[in-house]
Design a protein around this nucleic acid. Structure first.
Length: 564
RNA sequence: GCGCGGGUAGUCUAGUGGUAGGACAACGGCUUUCCGAGCCGUUAGCCCGGGUUCAAAUCCCGGUCCGCGCACCA
């Protein structure tokens, strides 16, 4: 185990879930400190992607009824057909294996795979024969209600909950594009072989923004502020670029401005969270790598001890999801976009002759008239009414040219989705912050978190655990807590030992109550990164700490240096 | 899922069939104590299940977790 993981477990950032029952791969518990970091990351995310966008946050169930995932395509594309060798026991994804060995594009169904296997006498690399192909579904399934109940799945992404609520959401935004909807929550994937602790989990935390736009206008008013920023890009042909976002869009490396905007904003967010710029890059998905719903996708990747790890996916999902849900639910999930000026359109229309249609078709007449409205008029019109074919000639309608005013059009919005893996980001932040240096000739472990990301922001430490120091320290502690600062108190062990304790978990500031405190009501603030101390009045402590915690200013600006 | 290697206090580690030992950490105390000081004391462990044996941390089987490789990762 890495030195970092050892510390994270020992100090209460992360633990193996179900540990006393032997554990289960793919699940982790956030201890007090890890949970603190993740919460702070979530709040930072809200600041960026909810408050500072035209966006809202919602919360929908983690269980979804089967229909949702049939429509979304997860029920089929999430299911792989697998074949297992009788001899060596290896399992392959059938379609991949067939393509690799035979060069055939096999359909991903059991029947199709079976056919190909028999036809070509498909064998394993080791020479063994294969068992019957089987479906492997990577969603967790469950039953809603008692008995046979209703089939449901644990959601593999939070996004579907947003798409399903689209009508309500569009209404909430008064049908005006663009708008964004976010959700922060758990999602579940029944990974075959979860590895690398935090990196591949079966239950994980997502923060997703679904940004609905007019497909003809994939721009963003705030793009200005990012367009001249240089960024590291790896395109789908593995070419590396270091160019401005504007150029990337103009050269067609990034499909459009809106994707570029979210790439830039994501980068800004990740840097603010504490990821190191030199360990961050954006990589475009290759054509065969993209999810079934995506037309273009860029990942933010962080360099960690596990290599480059995907931490954010920024995808253009086009109208895939809304169209699918329209199709499967029968609900109209389009948005009416008015033209600036209504336009006049001359067109031919079939005007029904009610006195003929009524007697001839009786109860079907009403439906026929409705359908007639929608079809291209011609001398002879064929319609399908309740599964029955009806042929109409000009006996039943006349063709007229009419002028109509059209005020707008219905379109299905496209959706741009920045999707964040909070667990991976939390871990990457911790790994990038983990450092060692030498203080007074001794090695020290220090977690150089951004101040606003630290789970314990301030530690209050009496120099001696004697009543006169302890009493003052307790008062300072209460004062800081009352002002919303995450503060801990510690009087156990020598002062040096305690500084090390808080360095290790990334606490940016230690307040020490010493002999001089008792004389003049001043305390020292010690900076985690430099170990410098300044002396300030207790009365000014809250104001100074708040300023320090929300900025990167140096403590020496705030008081007399007590110790270099 | 397959193969290989591991699993001993919170952490690291010694222990090849015969009373589980140490270091660090944590906790209590002593020491006028500003960068992991010292001294005394305390808490705390053989991954789980089965088998072999008079006797299993140790040998065997199965499971599980961790690491690595293969496969998988919409």
């Amino acid at each position: 185990m890495s030195e970092l993981m050892e510390m994270l477990i020992r100090r209460g950032f992360l633990w193996q879930s179900f540990e006393i029952y032997g554990g289960m791969a793919g699940f982790i518990d956030y201890g007090p400190l890890g949970n603190g970091v993740r919460r702070k990351l979530e709040n930072l995310w809200r600041e960026f992607f909810v408050i500072n966008e035209r966006a809202v946050e919602i919360d929908t169930p983690t269980i979804g009824v089967e229909e949702v995932f049939i429509a979304s395509g997860h029920a089929s594309s999430f299911t792989d057909v697998a074949i297992e060798c009788n001899e060596c026991g290896r399992i392959f994804r059938a379609d991949h294996y067939i393509k690799e060995k035979l060069g055939i594009e096999a359909e991903e169904t059991i029947e199709s795979v079976k056919e190909v296997m028999e036809l070509y006498d498909l064998r394993c690399e080791c020479g063994g024969s294969f068992k019957q192909p089987e479906n492997i579904n990577l969603m967790f399934s469950t039953t809603i209600g008692p008995g046979r109940g209703k089939k449901g799945y644990l959601r593999p992404e939070t996004a579907q909950g947003i798409f399903i609520d689209f009508k309500r959401l569009s209404d909430y935004f008064r049908d005006k594009l663009p708008f964004g909807v976010t959700q922060i929550g758990r999602a579940y994937r029944n990974e075959i072989s979860p590895r690398q602790g935090v990196i591949r989990l079966r239950e994980f935390n997502q923060a997703e923004l679904e940004y609905f736009v007019d497909p003809r206008n994939k721009t963003h008013p705030q793009f200005e502020q990012y367009k001249n920023q240089k960024i590291k890009l790896v395109d789908k042909f593995d070419n590396e670029h270091e160019i401005t976002l504007n150029e990337a869009v103009e050269k067609g490396i990034i499909a459009h401005e809106l994707l570029a905007y979210f790439i830039a904003k994501t980068r800004e967010f990740l840097l603010k969270a504490g990821l190191k710029d030199e360990k961050l890059r954006f990589r475009q998905h290759k054509d065969d790598e993209r999810a079934h719903y995506a037309v273009d996708c860029w990942d933010a990747e962080a360099l960690t001890s596990y290599g480059w790890v995907e931490i954010v996916g920024i995808a253009d999902r086009s109208d895939y999801d809304l169209s699918k849900h329209t199709q499967y639910s029968g609900e109209d999930l389009s948005v009416f976009i008015p033209f600036k000026e209504p336009i006049k359109v001359r067109k031919k229309k079939a005007i029904p002759k009610m006195d003929k249609i009524g007697p001839a078709f009786k109860d079907k007449a009403k439906k026929i008239v409705e359908l007639l409205e929608k079809v291209e008029p011609s001398e002879k019109i064929e319609l399908e009414v309740d599964g029955e074919k009806v042929v109409l000639t000009t006996e039943y309608f006349e063709i007229k040219e009419v002028e109509e005013e059209v005020h707008g059009e219905k379109i299905i919005p496209h959706v741009i989705e920045p999707s964040f893996g909070l667990d991976r980001i939390t871990y990457s932040v911790l790994e990038h912050a983990f450092d060692k240096d030498i203080v007074d000739g001794e090695e020290r472990k220090v977690l150089r978190l951004k101040r606003w990301m630290a789970p314990v922001q301030v530690a209050v430490l009496p120099l001696l655990s004697k009543d006169e120091f302890v009493n003052v320290a307790q008062n300072v502690l209460e004062m800081l807590k009352a002002n919303g600062i995450f503060t801990e108190y510690d009087d156990s062990g020598s002062i040096g030992r305690r500084y090390r304790r808080y360095d290790e978990i990334g606490t940016p500031f230690c307040i020490t109550i010493d002999h001089q405190t008792l004389e003049d009501n001043t305390v020292t603030i010690r900076d985690r990164d430099t170990t410098k101390q300044v002396r300030v009045k207790i009365d000014e402590l809250v104001t100074i700490l708040k300023e320090l915690l929300s900025s990167e200013r140096d403590i020496v600006e705030f008081g007399k240096i007590f110790k270099e």
